[in-house]
């Protein structure tokens, strides 16, 4: 198996995610692009998990790298990432909805982050 294939797929997906985040104005689409990036990372995790171990034969595993006899950490991380992504999407969409309720829009360009009064420090 040529591991470069999933890696390149992941790289391209990540690039698409970046492109989407930067290109899209709709918050939901941005979230989708973020999902793409997360999945790209997941793919790398899983691919690495499946393949790197076979490349490491003969290498004395370090204690920190090998907490249990058979490391499947990549897949577990991927699971964790998926869970995190779910949480992120839940909260993110709640924010989007709330924002929509307040402003009737989900266009990120209109989000103003600097409308707060701060004490002006004059010498």
């Amino acid at each position: 198996m040529h591991v470069v294939i999933p890696y390149v797929v992941a790289a391209l997906l990540f690039a698409l995610g970046v492109y989407g985040v930067l290109r899209r104005r709709n918050a939901i689409l941005v979230l989708m692009a973020v999902e793409l990036m997360l999945n790209a990372v997941n793919l790398i995790l899983v691919a690495a998990d499946s393949t790197i171990k076979s490349a490491l034969t003969g290498v004395q595993p370090e204690a920190w790298a090998n907490p249990v006899p058979e490391p499947r950490a990549g897949a577990i991380f991927a699971l964790f990432v998926i869970v995190l992504a779910a949480a992120e999407v839940g909260v993110g969409l709640a924010i989007v909805l709330q924002y929509y309720r307040l402003r009737r829009a989900v266009i990120l360009d209109d989000v103003e982050l600097y409308r707060h009064d701060h004490e002006r420090v004059t010498g």
Binding site: A11, T51, S54
Partner: peptide, 20 residues
């Protein structure tokens, strides 16, 4: 990003075979 990552990964793994 895509180009960089692709180049990096391709350069790293080449056309190596791995046992699944």
């Amino acid at each position: 990003v895509g180009l960089g990552l692709t180049v990096l990964l391709v350069d790293a793994f080449r056309w190596t075979e791995f046992e699944l």
